[in-house]
Design a binder for these strands. Structure first.
Lengths: 95, 95
DNA sequence: TTTATTTGGTTTATATAATAAACTAATTTA
DNA sequence: TAAATTAGTTTATTATATAAACCAAATAAA
């Protein structure tokens, strides 16, 4: 009846990160921080978890002389997100 | 952009409990345990939290000589659930 | 030009939460 | 009457989310 909800995605901040990345080609750390309102520390930790799971790719480089972290969702990330949404429907759809 | 997800509902087991109770007039502890596959201990704790939040009502009585705990969702519970689902849509709907 | 502030993060510590294990109490069965 | 089952609760453990503290470089201010 109730499918398991992927615990990596069942997290407010990680879900928001994935949601953002689904809609864009790429997004950098600062943009995601602004959109989510998360603290940098929390964001750093959650990005790390998503990367380790293979759900996002993270590129650390520089824009001019300032560091810049760019994130991109992966195929595995898209698949996991879609599966999560399917599972979730079993909980939130009426009847 | 991203509304806060009510942390009381953003929990796999509590969400399943609420989902069950939304669809029925009432449900007892054993039924919920079977439907969710949760351990009795975990279920007991989570039912307590939902009750303390005023999202469900809990009646402890007896069926014959055996104890029986019956749960029912409240108006506040229905409202909170609906708000949670609305907020969630902001995360999972494409674009 | 040295000092403060800002930017872009990471690491570490803390509080909360989920969960299972252990336990209680009564009941039924062997 | 001893063992097992039912219906839970309490307690302990592990994991998680989060913020606070920190670091390094760049820029702005005195």
């Amino acid at each position: 009846m109730f499918k398991e909800l992927n615990p990596l995605l069942h997290s407010e901040l990680r879900l928001a990160i994935m949601s953002i990345l689904l809609g864009v080609d790429e997004a950098d750390f600062v943009f995601i921080r602004e959109q989510t309102g998360a603290t940098a520390g929390n964001l750093s930790v959650q990005i790390d978890k998503l990367q380790k799971a293979g759900y996002i790719e993270v590129q650390k480089g520089f824009r001019g002389k300032m560091p810049r972290t760019v994130c991109r969702i992966t195929r595995a990330g898209i698949d996991a997100f879609e599966e999560y949404v399917e599972a979730l429907k079993g909980y939130i759809q009426p009847k």
